[in-house]
Structures are given as structure tokens and as C-alpha cells.
Amino acid sequence: MWNFPLVPPTASKEGADISLLYWAITLLAVVFGGIVLFGVIYLAVRYRADNNAVDRSNATESDLRVELAWTIIPLILALVIFGWATKLYADIYAPREGYYEVFVIGKQWMWHCQHPNGVRENNILTLPAGRLVKVSLISQDVIHAFSIPAFRVKRDAVPGRYNAMYFTPTKPGEYHLFCTEYCGTKHSEMIGKVVVLPEDEFQAWLEKGGQGLATATTSMGGGAAGGGTLTLAQQGEQTFKALGCNACHLNPNSAVKVPDITKTWGGEIKLADGRTVKGDEAYIRESILNPGAKIHAGYQNLMPPYQGQVSEEQLVQLIAYIKSLAGDSGGGK
């Protein structure tokens, strides 16, 4: 068997762009490296001590013009590539809209993925080809990193905060999935695969509830039962009720005055201290775990903190639910 690849497969739109940049920088490196490597060898051989046949006259010891030339030319090239790379990075990693969203929770030593329709997968992530995907990442314990080399993307899964990564898989197939941030003994076993299916196959797969591999409740904390039959948002609604959130929120007869959570997602929220924050995953997460941290203007903080009482999985469900209240079924607004 001759299996000796030298480049990774390129299976995403972003991957193709990043590859182009990679090879452009490599070309630059080869040119400059070549000048230096061959230049050094050429000069060292040509001006070897016992070679008296070369002209050594006018050997200046400094020359401002030359110095400026080899300062400014690399500088210009550097700035050009910097601009290109930064634009590309911002295009990929700045918040984007119109995505298919998957929540991924990392823990020692596995990846747990949740689809919007409730399908769950462990160490496998099944995705549709041709659609923008957003992966919202968080970790339950130490820092992990979610890396898909074929897509040329990677993000750290940090405990306590959501990170997002975006990519558009283009080629159906199976690709490596790695944890690339050292996370302990079985770091190198925290691997899996990303399966990209053509859109129609993916839809069929979703409807079948992920081919039975994901419906079982995982070891990663409770969460509403019956994943695969309920969407993530519906699971969130169940969790919402199970935790008693509906005693105040979305309850027209509530005795206490609470902010309208249907407007939280994507909204600009005025705070009691005068600041305005964006209603994103991080804000919702924080407001569940520690409601006192950022208080709506005009409201008192009466909500108990849920720190330590909801699992990361339940949080993900609740966020999906609150997003759905704002009319977002997992695709940005």
C-alpha cells in the first residue's frame, strides 16, 4: 500500500483560500530562502581564502542604500501579505450569518456534538456539503482545540466561554478531527472524524436521527431525553421548564417583572450601569449562570444564579431555545 500524502485534502471553501495564501507565503519563503542559502554558499565558495582570482577591491563595509533596500523591500512584501492574511482571517472568523450551527462540547477526552434538530454525536461530526457551518465551542474541563486540517480551521475550546468557528465544507468525504491543545493523558486519543455528506443525504441522515448512533443519552450530563426526536431548541424548552425558568420568564402572570427573553438573542441590551451589550451566546450563558453580572436597565436582579446547576449540554439547549424565540432556528439572523 502506497499511502504517502504530502498535503492534506482541501475540503472547504475557506481551506482553498488559506491554501492559496499558504503557498504564496511558501513561494516568498522559497525565493528569499533560496537567495540566502545559495547566496551564502556561492559567496563562501567564491571568496574562499585561497582563491586569489577574485576581485576584492572596493569592498565597502556599509552602504545606506543597500541597507534601506533590504529593509524596505521585505517590509513592503510583509505588509502586503499581512493585509491579505488579515483580510482572509477576518472574513473567516468574524461573525457570519446564514449558517448551520453545531454546538461542540469538549471534555477529557472526547468531543460531543449537538445538531440543531437534536441529533447528538460523539467524536464524529456529520455535516452537509456546500453550506456555511458555525461550530460553537466550549469545554467542560481544560482547554482543548477543535481542529479539522482538511478545512484549515481550528479553534480552542475554552472552559467558561464560547468560541465560534465558521467554514463551508465543499467535498463529501471523511476527514480527520483532532484535539490540538494538549489536554492531558489521552490527548492523542481525543480524535474523531468529520463526515461531509451531500445535502440530500445529510437531510436524510438528520431525519433518521443520525443513524442511531447518537440518540442515546450520553455520559455528558442530563439534558432533555429523546435527543433525535426533539430539536435542540425543543430540548431547550423542556430544560427551560424543568429548571422552572417559566415561573417568571415568558409567563404573563408572573409576579415579578422580568426582561423579555424573546428579544435577547441578537438584540442590543441596555444595562443598568449604562453600558450596552450584544445579546450573544456569551451573554445568555452568563445571564443564566450569573444573572447579576449584567443587569437589564429598568429591572432588578431577582434571578438566582444557576452556576453549577446546569450542564454545558443544557446550556447549549437553552441557548438554542432562546435563539428560536427570537426567530432564529440556528442560522443567524
Binding site: G292, Q300, N301, L302, Q307
Partner: peptide, 11 residues
Amino acid sequence: FTAFKRVTPQE
């Protein structure tokens, strides 16, 4: 008494 913030005893 005006509350600014609620925390669990553990926090």
C-alpha cells in the same frame, strides 16, 4: 435593601 447581584454561597 437594594440588591445588585445574587450569588450562590459557593460562588
